[in-house]
């Protein structure tokens, strides 16, 4: 069951990522990115991270991608233009990416003692403990300060986003 689900959603994930590259309209790329993120949520579920699967769907596929599609619609972004600049990335970028992928794959396939995931796996050794319990126990005791600091970060990000995206036209006409 695990193998079937993994194969299905890994394939969906890769198909979405490749589709993101081949689409020329940003809205199509955004939609394929949603496919990638939702399939990743299923993979998290398979690896026993239930909370992260839910957070992935709500935060990534929900909030962040809605923001993306909203901006695409707001700016009325059209079809992508052909490049005007240099094509150095063909000569330098792609070999570099190929080398990086080769190195990563070699390292990953040579790791000793890497286990395997079965259907219905969970992190905890105790039978009754859920993933959420385990996660919140660490998050709200050992890592309480980083968690609270993150809320400040989000607040600063909201203020920054408002300050950056605000119209500055009205200030120029004040002196008239």
């Amino acid at each position: 069951m695990h193998l079937i689900l993994f194969a299905l959603f890994a394939a969906l994930c890769l198909a979405g990522a490749v589709n993101l590259l081949f689409q020329t309209h940003p809205i199509n790329s955004a939609l394929s990115l949603i496919v990638v993120m939702t399939s990743l949520a299923v993979l998290y579920l398979l690896l026993g991270a239930e909370f992260l699967a839910a957070a992935q769907v709500i935060v990534y596929a929900g909030a962040i991608m809605v923001l993306f599609t909203f901006v695409v619609m707001l700016l009325n972004a059209g079809r992508e233009e052909r490049t005007l600049g240099s094509r150095a990335y063909w000569a330098v970028g792609f070999p570099a990416v190929a080398v990086l992928l080769a190195i990563l794959a070699t390292v990953v396939l040579h790791i000793q003692g890497l286990g395997s995931a079965a259907f219905g796996d969970s992190l905890s050794n105790q039978p009754g403990q859920t993933n959420l319990e385990q996660l919140s126990q660490v998050l709200f005791t050992n890592l309480l300060l980083p968690f609270e600091v993150t809320s400040v970060l989000i607040l600063v990000a909201i203020l920054g986003a408002v300050a950056l995206a605000r119209h500055t036209e009205p200030e120029r006409t004040v002196g008239k």
């Binding site: 069951m1 695990h2 193998l3 993994f6 890994a10 994930c13 890769l14 990522a17 490749v18 993101l20 590259l21 990638v36 993979l43 398979l46 690896l47 970028g93 792609f94 990416v97 990086l100 992928l101 990563l104 794959a105 990953v108 396939l109 790791i111 890497l114 286990g115 395997s116 995931a117 079965a118 259907f119």
Partner: peptide, 22 residues
Amino acid sequence: QQEVPLALYLLLSAVLFSLGIV
């Protein structure tokens, strides 16, 4: 009942990262 080796997951992660760079 087949289990999936975690190396496959890591490989998927590496491929996704490379696709992101591309």
